[in-house]
């Protein structure tokens, strides 16, 4: 669909935007790659062209049509505060940014596909949840946390857009939490704590998505977009206790009265603004997503299942300790890929 086409990546300076750009650059079928973001990516993106623009600004509606994209990939949805993206700005970045981007896409002639890198957080975490959410179950439970409501809101805009523009293949990718030795996100930082506090009496089922699969699935969906939502989640699930045991991390169960207090402290420590909400619920009830659509419709074969991703993370993590990588905790640029200092 997007063969020899032109791809515009919004939010290219995010880790996943950069990864996508580099993967697409290696892909022979892709013509021109243009990245949009407010700041220049910190990694070398090869043949990707960079345009500095803010998708929250209505000017994007004039800019985007001039780029004449065939495919627009929105990677600018962030789930946790990063440098330059404080938590109070997340709503603006996620919801308003998406809204403006969709408005800009309306202006683009001959747009073939729109791919949004969303989050499985829309399903929430609930004790009565199905063990594996399928794509049609997104609004089965009330949207509880702020980030969940943001995702719900932008998916609402996205659905409307998709309905009004049947000619455009609109894909909403719902990513489970990513894990990877080189990755620096709240989950990996949480797992890197010397002693990991857990909620006493709870052992959530998690689906850590391997970073390679996260990039691979995003690339695959960009090259082969399908209509509607697609869960990006590994096969199987792993319980937090087992994950920690594999990682050799001592876990301390925090009793319920203290866990709210302590985990919000931990949340700020690992840089997840919503630890007291999303993270805490996730680490209590867990979440599982059905990935049949990804495998069957998008046609992406995952390289790692949940356990494999965890094992790979542990193996590579122990091979390169944070100190050896020259990283000081907490990371100076949370969310950016870790590069070793030569």
């Amino acid at each position: 669909m997007a063969r020899e086409g032109r791809v515009v990546i919004a939010g290219v300076a995010t880790h996943w935007g950069s990864e996508l750009a580099r993967a697409l650059a290696r892909s022979p079928g892709v013509g021109q790659i243009i990245g949009i973001d407010t700041s220049e990516p910190e990694v070398d993106l090869g043949r990707t062209e960079f345009v500095e623009a803010d998708i929250r600004n209505p000017v994007i509606s004039r800019l985007l049509p001039t780029l004449e994209p065939d495919v627009v990939v929105h990677c600018g949805i962030v789930g946790y505060p990063e440098k330059g993206r404080p938590s109070r700005a997340l709503h603006d970045i996620n919801v308003i940014g998406t809204l403006q981007l969709l408005a800009a896409c309306e202006k683009v002639k001959n747009l073939k596909a729109l791919v949004v890198r969303g989050s499985a957080a829309i399903y929430g975490s609930s004790p009565s949840a199905p063990a594996f959410f399928t794509e049609d179950m997104a609004r089965q439970f009330p949207l509880e946390t702020r980030f969940q409501r943001d995702i719900g809101e932008l998916e609402g805009y996205f659905d409307n857009f998709a309905r009004r523009h049947p000619s455009i293949t609109c894909t909403m990718l719902r990513f489970q939490t990513e894990i990877g030795a080189g990755l620096d996100n709240p989950l990996t930082r949480y797992l890197s704590l010397p002693v990991v506090p857990t909620q006493m009496g709870w052992d959530p089922r998690l689906q850590p998505l391997h970073a390679a699969d996260a990039t691979g699935a995003l690339t695959a969906a960009t090259l082969n977009p399908v209509r509607g939502a697609v869960n990006v989640a590994p096969d199987g699930a792993i319980s937090l206790s087992r994950l920690l045991r594999l990682a050799g991390k001592p876990a301390i169960g925090v009793p319920p009265v203290l866990s709210g207090l302590l985990l919000s402290r931990v949340g700020s420590m690992v840089g997840s603004g919503d630890m007291e909400n999303d993270g805490q619920l996730l680490l209590r009830y867990g979440r599982g997503c059905d990935n049949r659509r990804l495998r069957e419709d998008v046609g992406y074969e995952l390289a790692f299942d949940a356990e494999g991703a965890a094992r790979d993370f542990v193996a590579k993590k122990s091979a390169s300790s944070p100190l050896a990588a020259g990283r000081v905790f907490p990371a100076p640029h949370p969310g950016s890929p870790v590069r070793s200092v030569k």
Binding site: A129, P130, A131, F133, Q199, W202, Y285
Partner: peptide, 27 residues
């Protein structure tokens, strides 16, 4: 709601309990 009770929830899950909803049963 058994899955909303600490300790009970993961005990039940580990011995093969699953939250009762049609999606789980189907799978």
């Amino acid at each position: 709601w058994a899955f909303d009770v600490p300790f009970v929830s993961y005990f039940i899950r580990r011995i093969g309990g699953v939250a009762a909803n049609p999606a789980n049963l189907t799978r």
